[in-house]
Nucleic acid binder design. Structure first.
Lengths: 328, 328
DNA sequence: TTGTATGCGTTATCAA
DNA sequence: TTGATAACGCATACAA
């Protein structure tokens, strides 16, 4: 910048004003500066600018997932793109930080506390998450996607897992199924626990805990395993609610192997309306989860907190329409 | 930090030395400082530290993809996790920046030029990519994953797409196929163009350009479309090389719909050995792409450039074993 | 409209 | 082993 100032014959203050669009720069000064910038190949230093302004114009996107899950879960990418869209429109930079180890967690914590970003979106936090702790103490504008059990007084966006699970289970029952099971997962998080609660609520008296098979994660292979287990526990099962489309796809495979026809012998419903849903044979009846919308909403909430437009923590629930296809 | 200094009765210099592990801090000073830090709730400011040290201890991970593709491509996530692993071990923060629009590109360019990161890994750059331009002029340590056609004098890691495509095509031919087609994609990038070249090389005289169907991207739905097109062009086709597993999975679906048996009537091979490969029925014979390894190698290259251990641009090729399953 | 001076929160150099 | 003090590169209040 020094070089530019000398080259253009103006003070550094004037350059700064031009670059920040403060107005109050004469046309000739502007032209000389712009020429000088090109000549010198000047690029403003983001770090210095951030330090001086006491803000970065960047928002973190924290994804805390064990490796396999991050790759497996189609929602995370969509949430991220939604967030990036909203931030980009406001000219904020999304910086995505992935936490895959203890070491990552402490390093990311340092960065967040250190004014590296002006706020952040957190996906897939769980109970007692160190990152949640950081957010609580750091006073950083933040919005969670989904809410870990121990989240209080912080904004979050999500869906009504209980209601949507109950609703799709009810639809499944309405097709005349008598013995309906569930392949459940992530019971330590709201998504998992609430879907089970909704399932149970829909069944009422008919709920049989023996027909609920918990699996390790929302994956295809766990779906195969879960359905196989369910079939061995209850060969007469004629309906299944899988906790995600990937799991449902796995269940379909297991049913095929076992010689059951879908939906004639067994009705299957999933959750997410991810790409899985239409790839399966038959295509899945499922709950549409508005992943991009969640990302956008979370990002907007953070931006509103930064600008002061939102001062109180808020919970935002997005709609989850049911998409009925051929698997039930 | 000022508060901590007052509280502990030492100078800020001493605190800095303690925090940076420079040694030369007495035990009592250390204890007083640590107590003061806890009491005040002090967290070092990353921005100021970066400015003073003239480096950030962060490496960018730039992904430049149209939205759909980012979600569709299973490799990107794996590459990212591999890079994060290597960076984390070296105590570097990976900051992932996604470029989804013109606006994103210029903003990210500014950040990169502005000393926001010490180096960066770039995935899926294409010809005339503005980000590639930034890297060229910014003198930033960088490693590309794959090499766009106009890449010179910059480090990259990748695989030998020509050789691996030729090899798997040869294996396919060895099963006795006579009319072998290809569903190709991304012909404007090395991955796409080279795979086509390898395919052509394996066929030699028998290569028939009419049996090559280009599709828009590496997706399942494009696979369905491509295979349908290929069948209509050449009903007698008995072998297909799909440019990715997702495409191969789509091809399988199209073949099923058309009443062809795989591998009896038509042999199908893919590329990537992604999760698709084992989910399909039948499971795919394919080329294993070491995605995590690519990410790790790229990150290491960047770290070596930062530390000065690597001064000349280098190209690193990773092995791509063939995984033979049941689809051919 | 422009220049000057001070501050942003660290690190690093140099004496002490 | 420690404490002053000068960078780091920019923004900004104030004076001109």
């Amino acid at each position: 910048m020094h070089d530019v100032a000398r080259e253009a014959g103006v003070s550094r203050g004037t350059i700064s004003r031009l670059l920040n669009g403060d107005g109050y720069v004469s046309v000739e000064a502007r032209e000389r500066i712009e020429a000088a910038i090109r000549k010198v190949g000047y690029a403003p230093n983001a770090t210095a600018r951030n330090l001086a302004r006491q803000r970065t114009n960047a928002v973190g996107f924290i994804v805390h997932e064990p490796h396999a899950l991050f790759l497996e879960d189609p929602n995370i990418g969509a949430i991220m793109l939604g967030a990036n869209e909203a931030l980009s429109e406001a000219d904020y930079q999304m910086v995505c930080l992935v936490v895959g180890s203890e070491r990552d967690a402490t390093r990311v914590g340092r960065y967040l506390r250190g004014g590296f970003v002006d706020g952040c979106v957190v996906v897939s936090a769980r109970a007692n998450d160190p990152i949640t702790d950081v957010m609580k103490t750091a006073q950083l504008p933040v919005a969670f996607v989904g809410h870990p059990p121990d989240l209080h007084d912080l904004s979050w966006v999500g869906i009504d897992n209980v209601a949507s699970a109950r609703e799709i289970t009810a639809r499944l029952l309405a097709t005349g199924r008598r013995h309906v099971g569930m392949i459940a997962s992530a019971l330590d998080r709201d998504s998992g626990a609430d879907r089970l609660a909704g399932f149970s609520a829909a069944l009422g008296d008919r709920f049989d805990a023996g027909l609920v098979v918990p699996v390790d994660n929302y994956s295809y292979s766990e779906g195969v395993r879960g359905m196989t287990e369910l079939l061995s526990r209850a060969p007469h099962v004629d309906g299944v609610f899988a906790a995600s489309d990937a799991v449902a796809a796995g269940a379909l495979e297991a049913l095929l192997r076992a010689g059951r026809r879908v939906p004639q012998d067994v009705g299957v419903v999933g959750f997410d309306d991810s790409a899985w849903a239409t790839r399966c044979t038959p295509p899945l009846s499922t709950v549409r989860q508005p992943a991009e919308g969640l990302g956008r909403a979370a990002a907007r909430s953070v931006l509103d907190q930064i600008s002061g437009a939102q001062s109180e923590p808020a919970a935002i629930l997005l709609d989850t329409p049911i998409v009925w296809r051929e698997s039930a």
